[in-house]
Amino acid sequence: MLIERMILVAMWLFGIVGFILFIPRKDWRRGLFAFLMFQAIIWLCDMPSFQFGLLSAPVREFPKATDLPVTIDYLFYPALFSIFYVNKKVRASLWYSFAYYFIWITATTLFDSMLEKYTGLLEYKLLTWYGMWIYIGFLFYTSEICCNWFYKDKSHYKQNERGETS
């Protein structure tokens, strides 16, 4: 139980310090919006998955209040997504964008699987590691689409020869 609490404290530290160090100051507003967008989407997706027994969190911060792992879902993964979103290259090649996305999703899933295997913070019930990879990929992709829509990121829309978006 002590090791789980130490990991939760480390996630809080990395989430806050990572946000400050890995997101340039001029992009904090964009990072904060990405953080909040990911929180909203993960809440909508995790509530049913924990309710229907796909996942469980035996050790959590508020055991009598909710079944959800608050630190993992509402601080650590949103901080990772905001670092991912702010630091991605907007006009990169398709290959680079795919590789960047694939590496982030794989690293996040690997960390999640290690939490599940070696601690009591997460427990996969009906979900496997590749199911979690698809799930985290879906969360990142959906959050990225919503953030791009909010900022009306023109690099993701088709432009005609005059530079106008259609």
Results as ranks from 00 to 15, higher is better:
F102H: 14
F33H: 11
T109F: 00
G137T: 12
K125D: 11
L21S: 13
T165A: 08
S82A: 09
L44A: 07
K117H: 14
F14G: 08
F62L: 12
V17G: 02
L121V: 06
I3F: 06
L94S: 15
L21K: 15
S143E: 04
K88M: 06
L115D: 05
D67P: 10
F140K: 03
A57Q: 02
L8C: 07
V90F: 05
A34I: 05
E123G: 08
R5A: 12
T108S: 10
I16T: 09
M11I: 05
V17K: 01
C147W: 04
L8F: 12
P48F: 00
F38K: 02
I3G: 03
D73F: 02
L2S: 13
F81R: 02
V90N: 12
L2A: 14
L32I: 09
L115Q: 05
S49A: 10
N160M: 05
V70F: 04
C147Y: 08
R162E: 15
L110C: 12
I7C: 02
F35M: 01
L121Y: 12
L126R: 09
Y135G: 12
K117C: 05
P63W: 00
G15W: 01
L36I: 07
L55Q: 02
F76A: 00
S166T: 13
Y157V: 15
D112G: 10
M6N: 11
L2M: 09
F138L: 14
E144H: 11
I105T: 09
S166F: 07
L127W: 11
R5S: 10
Y124K: 05
L2E: 13
Y141D: 08
L115C: 08
M6I: 11
F14E: 13
R91S: 10
T71Y: 01
F138W: 15
V9S: 05
D153M: 14
I83R: 03
G18M: 02
Q39D: 14
L110D: 14
H156A: 15
I42V: 09
Y74L: 00
L126Q: 15
V17Y: 00
F38Y: 07
A92Y: 03
W43K: 06
T109R: 01
L8T: 07
D73R: 04
Y85I: 10
C45M: 10
I20P: 01
R162T: 09
L2F: 15
K26E: 11
T108G: 10
F33R: 07
N87K: 07
R60G: 06
I7R: 02
L8S: 13
L36G: 06
I41W: 02
F52W: 06
K154W: 08
E123Y: 14
G163M: 06
W28H: 08
I136K: 04
F138M: 07
G163R: 09
Y85V: 11
F111Y: 12
D153V: 11
M37R: 04
A79P: 03
W133H: 08
A79I: 08
G53W: 01
F14R: 04
S82Q: 02
A10T: 09
M114G: 13
L94F: 15
